[in-house]
């Protein structure tokens, strides 16, 4: 381009694009340290069970945020993909004698493929309609798990599921699941820092504009659904060894809203947000355990309060507080 006032210094560009909730090295190291120490602090089986549940929720929330926050697709079917990962991997082990690790990979893959197919079938739907279609998929999946008794034992469930060899100790099982969460986080972070991040953002912001730049919105919706659902499936495959049993009720359609709440409370469209949201909303109902069914009430209340008063979620509030602190120190 000859008539441009040259030389143009690309160095004068902002170092990074707008990437809220992108943890720095220090934050990442601190988080890893806390994760490593946690099971040594929480020594009873209740506390360790909570840790594992939290790690599974972190994985699920990250997967949903890719679809919901980064690609902007209103997915209410998260529970279905969690269930598909859990049942496919467990049935492969129990019925086909497949080893745990390949079964885990195949369960993840199955959830990803189903997610991609759902996206392609609903590609013309947006907003509310996509939300209802994906919720419908979760209902159907739940009904299949309940009623395909010859395969799933229906509501009786599958029993005697053991964690993978070498991870029967709950501390090691926690480290395994936490390591998966860290890997998922790192992979999503790398992916979203690549041009794929800009492509999904374009899809989320304006499909007509995106198409005018050559972006095949169908394909990228399917991509986001496939990858996000595969992540949910991975969490699903790690779950049964921890629970020991597998019943359809663990994947009730309403559970999708639990994951949704984690993403929104934490901070939608950020990477740190779903982690924070999953941790907080795993702990919160336990702290209110005495009230029994308060779980859904807490989700509902937290969702309402956050949507009303903290549109950026916990992560957004954190960033605002940090910015204020910096200003005060400077001023």
């Amino acid at each position: 381009m000859s008539d441009v006032p040259s030389p143009v210094a690309a160095a004068s560009l902002p170092a990074a694009e707008c990437r809220p909730g992108w943890p720095g090295r220090a934050g990442a190291a601190a988080t890893l340290g806390i994760v490593a120490i946690l099971p040594l602090v929480l020594r009873d089986s209740y506390g360790r069970g909570l840790l594992i549940a939290g790690a599974l929720n972190v994985i699920q929330a990250l997967g949903l945020d890719l679809i919901l926050g980064f690609a902007g697709q209103l997915d209410l079917g998260a529970a279905a993909f969690y269930g598909i990962g859990a049942y496919v991997s467990t049935l492969l082990v129990m019925l086909a004698g497949v080893g745990f690790w390949p079964a885990l990979a195949l369960g993840t893959l199955a959830a990803g493929v189903m997610g991609g197919v759902l996206a392609l079938l609903t590609v013309r739907l947006r907003g509310h309609y996509l939300a209802i279609a994906s919720l419908g998929f979760a209902v159907i999946t739940y009904q299949v798990l309940l009623n395909w008794i010859s395969l799933t034992q229906g509501p009786l469930g599958l029993y005697g599921i053991t964690p993978p060899a070498g991870f029967t100790d709950p501390v090691r099982l926690f480290y395994l699941i936490a390591a998966c969460a860290v890997l998922v986080f790192a992979a999503l972070r790398a992916l979203l820092a690549s041009p794929v991040g800009a492509t999904l953002a374009a899809l989320r912001e304006d499909e007509i504009s995106a198409a005018s730049l050559g972006i095949d919105c169908r394909r990228w919706k399917a991509f986001a659904f496939a990858v996000g659902s595969a992540v949910a499936g991975l969490a699903g495959g790690l779950y049964p060894g921890f629970a020991g049993t597998l019943v359809p009720d663990a994947f009730a359609p309403a559970d999708s809203f639990g994951v949704l709440a984690m993403v929104i409370v934490g901070g939608i469209g950020t990477l740190r947000g779903p982690v924070l949201g999953a941790v907080v909303l795993t702990l919160a109902p336990e702290l209110l355990r005495g009230i029994g069914d308060a779980r859904m009430i807490v989700y509902g209340l937290a969702l309402t309060l956050v949507v009303l008063f903290m549109p950026g979620g916990l992560d957004g509030a954190w960033r605002m507080a940090a910015a204020r602190l910096r200003r005060n120190q400077a001023g």
Partner: peptide, 13 residues
């Protein structure tokens, strides 16, 4: 435009 993305990100897309 992609209103919530930066000027640079709009062009990068």
């Amino acid at each position: 435009l992609f209103r919530h993305l930066s000027v640079l990100e709009n062009v990068l897309a």
